[in-house]
């Protein structure tokens, strides 16, 4: 099981993108997860839920867009609360 490591990398990717919007808070992140990416969707959701709590980014929802026969594991959007 490597989904903990993947979830940690996902949070790092989110932090790196957020750094470009100083002061903004992210409320939702979108991930494209390929069927052949080697990553299990349920397990990743679970691990993400655990790690995000202590990340300083919570609450930050994760949407997973499943891609049949795909290989991607990509962060595809962030929703910012920019008021």
């Amino acid at each position: 099981m490597h989904e903990m490591g993947i979830a940690a990398s996902l949070l790092d990717a989110i932090r790196a993108e957020l750094a470009r919007y100083p002061g903004a808070r992210a409320t939702r992140a979108g991930l494209r997860l390929g069927e052949y990416s080697g990553v299990d969707r349920e397990s990743l959701s679970f691990c993400y839920g655990v790690l995000v709590e202590d990340s300083g980014l919570a609450p930050l929802a994760l949407d997973i867009e499943f891609e049949p026969r795909g290989r991607d594991l990509d962060l595809i959007y962030l929703e910012l609360d920019d008021e």
Binding site: A13, E17, L31, D74, L75, I76, L80, D82
Partner: peptide
């Protein structure tokens, strides 16, 4: 609320 489209590999590092 605004949505920023991205294409960032989670395992990019």
């Amino acid at each position: 609320m605004s949505r920023i489209p991205l294409e960032r590999k989670v395992l990019g590092e």
